[in-house]
Design a protein around this nucleic acid. Structure first.
Lengths: 226, 226
DNA sequence: ACAAAAGTGTTTTCTCTACACCCATGA
DNA sequence: TCATGGGTGTAGAGAAAACACTTTTGT
């Protein structure tokens, strides 16, 4: 028991890399840091872990405060522990990436923090090592999108295959053959065709799809080879 | 500045999942816990993070103490932060997996801790959530082995393709076709054929290979499809 | 009429897999 | 000589990629 006493204790924070998708672009939610040091500079959503919550619970809490959303997809990415990564006091930072449906997102909550969605290719410089965190999270997002359909996390509940393809093109920064993408995705058997059609994006109109409710968690299939 | 003061601080530990390969089997290095609670039960190599070191440095320090080796391959796996995962006081645990070449390993260091190599299929019950940690690390090892040749980390500096294949069979718990495995691995272009032959494992004798020194870090190729 | 996306089908290319086969050699 | 691994080659299955083509409809 005594053994525990002699060791140091550290502040523990969570930082959330919040991805959203809007207007054909993958976006990141950033906000100006509210306190010193580097107050006012752009930063990831973050907060300290409290006495009786896990890091994951802390991340959910932070996201709920800043976006008004709960039940958000979260995945742990990496823990940064460099003793000098923050200047005032050592902070252990556990990072998560989150996928947000911007159509559900409550702007009012965010505005009070000054948060802003940034296109993934036009990010401002971030505080501390947050740029590295974002880069790692992007790689993880690509990995996740490659083995499970991230459409349900980033798109509205109904979406066309064009919308899904454009999302994948935004994530992977490349184009996909429309025909092949359609066949591949439908062959996974996790999408359900709806009766409604979307006529805003093409003359002919495209059927809406949604992710089947009773699908298994992991598809085990490759959507994008890498 | 004041903002920092009000938040709690936690003990921070590293736990190392140490893989080795010997006698055709993938093995895990475990040791009997040296202090209460659950003193004497089997546990991962672990230790607390000190004031002026990063978690990665702490993991290297722990490994050096217990195995006598430095410059070991380490990769961060996951951070466990459940407030009740340890019974005495809350501990944030950052886990790493390590790959050890048992041929280099110094037995004397380890014996003083009572450490023991366990075949991966015959692990004893571990303390706390360490069994889960091991399971996750195994998945990560499979992933790593799938996209980079782990031979250099787990095998002696010279190895035959039979030895490499047996290693992969131990990791993936399946067999690989000898001819196909050879072609696939050689096609990656990261192995260099040596002049020496190994005659202990076959009548004909097989050439030794080593990993090319100037290879790029990531191979970007799939060795094992998954 | 035309452009643009929807949707389907075909061809080519490539990789994985299974498996046949010869070689070398120690027991 | 026979069993065992070393090492090479080939044929078939299946997936990915390239791309041709037809449909629909707003402008």
């Amino acid at each position: 028991m005594e053994y525990y006493k002699q060791h140091p204790r550290f502040l523990t924070a969570v930082d959330c890399v919040v991805f959203g998708y809007e207007a054909g672009e993958l976006k990141l939610l950033l906000y100006p840091r509210a306190f010193e040091p580097v107050k006012g500079e752009w930063s990831l959503m973050g907060g300290f872990v409290r006495e009786n919550e896990s890091a994951e619970e802390a991340a959910h809490r932070v996201l709920c405060q800043t976006t008004g959303l709960d039940n958000i997809f979260l995945e742990q990415v990496y823990t940064f522990s460099n003793p000098t990564r923050e200047s005032v006091e050592r902070v252990i930072s556990i990072t998560y990436f989150a996928l947000i449906r911007i159509d559900r997102y409550k702007r009012n909550n965010t505005d009070s923090f000054g948060a802003k969605w940034w296109p993934i290719n036009e990010l401002p410089p971030l505080i501390f090592d947050h740029n590295e965190v974002v880069a790692q999270s992007l790689r993880r997002l690509e990995q996740k999108a490659g083995s499970s359909l991230v459409g349900s996390e980033l798109l509205p509940s109904r979406f066309t295959l064009l919308q899904l393809r454009k999302l994948y093109e935004a994530i992977y920064q490349r184009t996909f053959d429309p025909g092949n993408f359609r066949k591949k995705v439908l062959s996974l058997g996790v999408l359900e065709k709806l009766d409604q059609k979307n006529s805003t994006e093409s003359k002919k109109g495209a059927y809406y799809y949604k992710v089947k409710p009773n699908r298994v968690e992991e598809e085990l299939e490759r959507i994008v080879k890498y």
